[in-house]
Nucleic acid binder design. Structure first.
Lengths: 341, 341
DNA sequence: CTTATCAGCGAAAACGGTTTCGTAAATAAA
DNA sequence: TTTATTTACGAAACCGTTTTCGCTGATAAG
């Protein structure tokens, strides 16, 4: 119950609150002896400064916000670890907000940030987000914003992404090199720029290989595994089915495996699979999954570091910084070349 | 940049700050017309109240803390979703802190909570935690604390757990029923009560089945997958190797599969495996993994709900509440009974 | 010896809300 | 008409800290 305040310390020591405050902040205006006395009593009474009083006065909250679609995905789990590690290092606190892929929520959350609650924002936008006024407003209110992974192209702010286009190109190319001619591309959102880029890489790789793009093989999936299972199953039970699949979202992996198993389509003999995922379990799947893994932890970490650069210096024009951290294609059994074609 | 304050609204409307404040909070002391005027201007100037000023005066932060070991695990990812969903519902903000399994960090983090930064705490303790003074002090300072999953037995507070003992008993029993006689138990921490309970269930199931407990089969693993691979490999390459494994932590799954594969030990023919995990990918592993899945989302959600019950009423003695949400044993191929023994 | 400098501290004004209490006018009760 | 009550608002204290500025006494410089 004992909420020790500076006032209490001051009274106890026959000092003014001003002096106590300065002593605690190790000001040169205070003599060594008084500082020691103050520190000792603070220790003894277990004094913990009220952060909100301090924030109010200093107009700094020592807090950042992380707004994410969800933490279901292993990408965001790892990203949070990266972010938190540097925040804790810098003595900052991190507020977490989930949009659940809803633009309305994202808007409401961002609107709050115009107050002084946070000093800066790390955001990966929802897949419903196709306008960005809410973000621009926050930036206009003076808060630095750093995008990571899912960005808004039309907002001028720091952006930490991975090489979505290139890695998708490589993945597609890898399938082509291993014999695929009819490659399907599975995705879950029309809005995300990240998706545009991956699809662009996919299409470009096909074109560069002289393969034509079949729009029937570009299929939009949805939220739940059961529904996706049906969608994928329908795609694969077709006579003219694809001989390769690229899943650009982690959660599509399970329904793909299930659908192939259900249809008795052997991976990789009948169909080859690549998934964008950070699941460690990829290498113990049956068969082990060829993956494009994003540098999730690194992305979170550098996003946070860029944000802190903006927070620590008053040099706000650092904000146009754009960092691309490459993803990695890890080749395993699901894309193994057929020996006897 | 425009940080609209109540003072600005007041001046603009020729009202006192008191009246504006009351109007915004829809006080009965203010006439309908003035309220409308105030609301309109607030809207127009995009007024967002400063939360810290409000927190300072009201001595409420509308913020809770969630302190976790890590979010690497899918359990905690799901739990965060559960927590955040109810917090957002109640209009609360959630600060997230990771201890990285370090007691020192946990202590430092908890110590901060004696200030008014948060109104309540949700915690799953680090595996180094074997004293609980830091938690008791926070409770003594008047903040409600709710444990979830990993609890401190000697602290009087609300606790949301799963039936670790029973589910472990069932898992072990399931292995016994399917023919295992030499069952190994793999764990990663000596301290956690959650682990004691799981081990207790394991031992009890063995005893009840008339099997003797072999201490060599109770093996302590560590943090990284590579090291665990070696440990498990050593266990399994033994002449007198186990014919069943229970992994009480998700991250042990991968090294188990790898070690078995490396030693060409067929699962489930040569060795059967059960893992405590929430990985959705369990059903597409090779072979599909029998799991004990914890109700992660539910646990997070009810932990938050219990906390809010304490926050909303002044009835603090609700705090001795203990809720156990059962885990689920999902039987898949890794424990399939041998047909021809 | 006089004046500038400096070390060490305190008074008080912020920061932006909330809340208590008082008060004037309007209305209702007597 | 007088008194009581209600309505609608304002003044000011307050939450706990930070920060500016001023003050005193001591020391250094001239």
């Amino acid at each position: 119950m004992s909420n020790t305040t500076i006032k209490i310390l001051a009274k106890e020591l026959n000092l003014s609150v001003a002096s106590v405050s300065k002593a605690l902040r190790d000001s040169h205006e205070i003599s060594k002896e008084t500082k020691e006395k103050v520190l000792a009593l603070a220790q003894k009474l277990n004094y913990v400064p009220n952060p909100y009083a301090s924030s109010l006065r200093k107009r700094k909250s020592k807090t950042i916000a992380v707004v994410l679609p969800e933490v279901a995905d292993s990408f965001f789990s790892l990203a949070i670890n990266g972010i938190e590690s540097v925040a804790q290092d810098k003595g900052y606190h991190v507020l977490i907000y989930l949009t659940h892929e809803s633009f309305a929520r994202e808007e409401a959350i961002l609107n709050e940030f115009k107050s002084g609650r946070v000093d800066g924002i790390l955001i990966s936008v929802s897949d419903e987000t196709n306008t960005s006024d809410h973000i621009k407003q926050v930036i206009a209110s003076g808060k630095p914003v750093v995008f990571f992974d899912r960005v808004c192209d039309d907002v001028e702010a720091a952006k930490i992404t991975t090489d979505d286009m290139e890695s998708s190109y490589q993945a597609t190319h890898h399938l082509v090199m291993n014999g695929c001619r009819k490659i399907a591309y599975l995705y879950t959102s029309k809005n995300l720029s990240i998706n545009d880029k991956r699809m662009e890489g996919y299409k470009k790789a096909l074109s560069d290989s002289g393969l034509k793009i079949n729009e029937d093989f570009i299929v939009l999936c949805e939220g739940n595994t059961a529904g996706n299972f049906e969608i994928i199953r329908n795609l694969l039970k077709n006579k003219n089915r694809p001989d390769g699949i690229i899943a650009c979202v982690e959660k599509l992996t399970t329904p793909i495996y299930l659908a192939c198993h259900d249809l008795k389509l052997a991976i990789p003999d009948k169909i080859k699979v690549i998934s964008f995922t950070n699941l460690q379990a990829a290498l113990i799947l049956s068969p082990p999954l060829t993956t494009v893994t994003q540098p999730a932890f690194e992305m979170g970490k550098t996003a946070a570091m860029v944000l802190f650069k903006a927070l620590e210096k008053n040099n706000y024009n650092l904000k146009k910084e754009t960092i691309v951290i490459p993803s990695q294609l890890t080749i395993r059994s699901t894309t193994k070349k057929d020996l006897g074609v």
